[in-house]
Protein backbone atom coordinates (compact mmCIF):
# COMPACT_ATOMS: atom_id res chain seq x y z
CA UNK A 1 0.00 0.00 0.00
CA UNK A 2 1.35 3.40 -0.93
CA UNK A 3 0.63 6.54 0.97
CA UNK A 4 1.81 10.13 0.95
CA UNK A 5 4.07 10.98 3.84
CA UNK A 6 5.03 14.60 4.47
CA UNK A 7 7.54 15.88 6.97
CA UNK A 8 10.19 18.53 7.44
CA UNK A 9 13.64 17.24 6.63
CA UNK A 10 16.55 19.36 7.80
CA UNK A 11 14.38 22.45 7.63
CA UNK A 12 12.79 21.76 4.24
CA UNK A 13 9.34 20.35 3.55
CA UNK A 14 9.34 17.01 1.77
CA UNK A 15 6.45 14.87 0.59
CA UNK A 16 6.90 11.38 -0.80
CA UNK A 17 4.54 8.69 -1.92
CA UNK A 18 5.91 5.46 -0.55
CA UNK A 19 5.06 1.95 0.52
CA UNK A 20 3.87 2.37 4.11
CA UNK A 21 6.01 -0.56 5.24
CA UNK A 22 9.24 1.18 4.33
CA UNK A 23 11.47 2.47 7.06
CA UNK A 24 12.47 6.07 7.50
CA UNK A 25 16.07 5.03 6.75
CA UNK A 26 15.11 3.54 3.37
CA UNK A 27 13.16 6.63 2.40
CA UNK A 28 15.93 8.99 3.50
CA UNK A 29 18.57 7.12 1.53
CA UNK A 30 16.81 5.52 -1.42
CA UNK A 31 14.02 7.99 -2.11
CA UNK A 32 15.35 11.32 -0.87
CA UNK A 33 19.03 10.64 -1.57
CA UNK A 34 20.21 11.77 1.85
CA UNK A 35 23.15 9.38 2.16
CA UNK A 36 24.61 10.73 5.40
CA UNK A 37 22.55 8.36 7.54
CA UNK A 38 24.03 4.85 7.47
CA UNK A 39 22.67 1.35 7.83
CA UNK A 40 24.95 -0.70 10.08
CA UNK A 41 22.67 -3.60 10.96
CA UNK A 42 19.06 -2.99 9.96
CA UNK A 43 17.82 -4.35 13.26
CA UNK A 44 18.15 -1.43 15.62
CA UNK A 45 21.24 -2.78 17.41
CA UNK A 46 24.10 -0.60 16.20
CA UNK A 47 22.67 2.92 16.07
CA UNK A 48 24.46 3.95 12.84
CA UNK A 49 21.09 5.07 11.43
CA UNK A 50 20.17 7.32 14.39
CA UNK A 51 18.29 10.49 13.39
CA UNK A 52 16.17 12.97 15.31
CA UNK A 53 12.40 12.91 14.94
CA UNK A 54 11.04 16.01 16.66
CA UNK A 55 14.34 16.22 18.57
CA UNK A 56 14.15 12.65 19.89
CA UNK A 57 16.82 10.18 18.74
CA UNK A 58 15.35 7.19 16.92
CA UNK A 59 16.90 4.30 15.02
CA UNK A 60 15.60 5.05 11.55
CA UNK A 61 16.11 1.45 10.34
CA UNK A 62 13.19 0.35 12.52
CA UNK A 63 11.16 3.52 12.30
CA UNK A 64 8.19 3.17 9.92
CA UNK A 65 8.21 6.12 7.56
CA UNK A 66 4.50 6.75 8.02
CA UNK A 67 5.22 7.55 11.68
CA UNK A 68 7.33 10.47 10.48
CA UNK A 69 4.32 12.13 8.85
CA UNK A 70 3.91 15.64 10.18
CA UNK A 71 7.18 15.56 12.14
CA UNK A 72 10.46 17.36 11.80
CA UNK A 73 13.35 15.01 10.95
CA UNK A 74 16.98 15.99 11.41
CA UNK A 75 19.88 14.02 9.98
CA UNK A 76 23.59 14.67 10.17
CA UNK A 77 23.29 16.80 7.01
CA UNK A 78 20.92 19.11 8.85
CA UNK A 79 23.26 20.13 11.64
CA UNK A 80 25.07 22.82 9.69
CA UNK A 81 24.37 25.37 6.98
CA UNK A 82 25.73 24.50 3.53
CA UNK A 83 29.04 26.29 3.21
CA UNK A 84 28.91 27.18 6.88
CA UNK A 85 30.78 25.81 9.83
CA UNK A 86 30.08 22.41 11.26
CA UNK A 87 27.97 22.24 14.40
CA UNK A 88 29.73 22.26 17.79
CA UNK A 89 29.29 18.49 18.17
CA UNK A 90 30.82 17.82 14.74
CA UNK A 91 33.62 20.31 15.40
CA UNK A 92 34.44 18.63 18.69
CA UNK A 93 34.49 15.17 17.06
CA UNK A 94 36.94 16.49 14.49
CA UNK A 95 39.16 18.10 17.05
CA UNK A 96 39.16 15.22 19.52
CA UNK A 97 39.39 12.31 17.09
CA UNK A 98 35.87 11.02 17.60
CA UNK A 99 35.71 9.58 14.10
CA UNK A 100 37.85 6.95 12.44
CA UNK A 101 36.27 4.95 9.61
CA UNK A 102 33.30 7.27 10.00
CA UNK A 103 30.55 4.76 9.37
CA UNK A 104 29.05 4.86 12.87
CA UNK A 105 29.75 8.58 13.04
CA UNK A 106 26.53 10.15 11.71
CA UNK A 107 24.47 8.06 14.12
CA UNK A 108 26.90 8.69 16.95
CA UNK A 109 26.73 12.44 16.28
CA UNK A 110 22.91 12.43 16.31
CA UNK A 111 22.83 10.46 19.57
CA UNK A 112 25.30 12.97 21.03
CA UNK A 113 23.19 15.92 19.86
CA UNK A 114 20.10 14.37 21.47
CA UNK A 115 21.99 13.76 24.70
CA UNK A 116 23.32 17.31 24.92
CA UNK A 117 19.89 18.77 24.21
CA UNK A 118 18.55 16.87 27.18
CA UNK A 119 21.59 17.10 29.42
CA UNK A 120 23.91 19.98 28.50
CA UNK A 121 26.57 19.01 31.03
CA UNK A 122 26.77 15.20 31.08
CA UNK A 123 29.34 13.26 33.09
CA UNK A 124 31.51 10.67 31.39
CA UNK A 125 29.30 7.95 32.79
CA UNK A 126 26.17 9.63 31.45
CA UNK A 127 27.77 9.94 28.02
CA UNK A 128 28.75 6.27 27.97
CA UNK A 129 25.27 5.26 29.04
CA UNK A 130 23.61 7.51 26.44
CA UNK A 131 25.78 6.07 23.65
CA UNK A 132 25.32 2.40 24.61
CA UNK A 133 23.02 1.88 21.62
CA UNK A 134 25.64 3.19 19.18
CA UNK A 135 28.31 0.64 18.36
CA UNK A 136 31.74 1.65 17.13
CA UNK A 137 34.42 -0.88 16.16
CA UNK A 138 37.25 1.59 15.54
CA UNK A 139 37.65 3.95 18.43
CA UNK A 140 37.08 2.07 21.66
CA UNK A 141 34.82 5.07 22.38
CA UNK A 142 37.49 6.99 24.35
CA UNK A 143 37.87 9.84 21.87
CA UNK A 144 34.11 9.80 21.24
CA UNK A 145 33.44 10.40 24.94
CA UNK A 146 36.13 13.12 24.94
CA UNK A 147 34.49 14.70 21.89
CA UNK A 148 31.05 14.79 23.51
CA UNK A 149 32.50 16.30 26.69
CA UNK A 150 34.31 18.91 24.59
CA UNK A 151 31.11 19.64 22.66
CA UNK A 152 29.29 20.17 25.95
CA UNK A 153 31.91 22.67 27.07
CA UNK A 154 31.83 24.42 23.70
CA UNK A 155 28.04 24.70 23.73
CA UNK A 156 27.96 25.95 27.31
CA UNK A 157 30.50 28.65 26.42
CA UNK A 158 28.66 29.64 23.29
CA UNK A 159 24.97 28.90 23.67
CA UNK A 160 23.24 28.58 20.32
Amino acid sequence: MREEVAFRLNGHDVAVEVDVHRTLLDVLRDVLGEMGTKEGCGEGECGACTVLVDDAAVVSCLYPVCEADGTSVTTVEGLFEPGGELSPVQTAYLEFGGTQCGFCTPGMIMASVALLAENPDPSEEEIRYALTGNLCRCTGYVQIVESVRAAAELMMERPA
Binding site: M35, G36, T37, V76, E77, Q90, T99, G102, T105, I109
Partner: peptide, 19 residues
Protein backbone atom coordinates in the same frame (compact mmCIF):
# COMPACT_ATOMS: atom_id res chain seq x y z
CA UNK B 1 46.43 17.50 13.64
CA UNK B 2 42.88 16.72 12.66
CA UNK B 3 42.02 13.94 10.27
CA UNK B 4 42.07 15.38 6.71
CA UNK B 5 39.03 13.36 5.61
CA UNK B 6 37.32 13.83 8.99
CA UNK B 7 35.03 16.74 8.16
CA UNK B 8 33.36 14.79 5.35
CA UNK B 9 32.80 11.83 7.63
CA UNK B 10 31.25 14.12 10.25
CA UNK B 11 29.07 15.91 7.74
CA UNK B 12 27.79 12.66 6.26
CA UNK B 13 29.32 13.45 2.87
CA UNK B 14 32.03 10.76 2.76
CA UNK B 15 30.98 8.26 0.08
CA UNK B 16 31.05 4.61 1.06
CA UNK B 17 30.17 1.78 -1.30
CA UNK B 18 26.61 1.85 0.10
CA UNK B 19 26.24 5.48 -1.00
Amino acid sequence: AQRPEGADKLAGTARYIHD
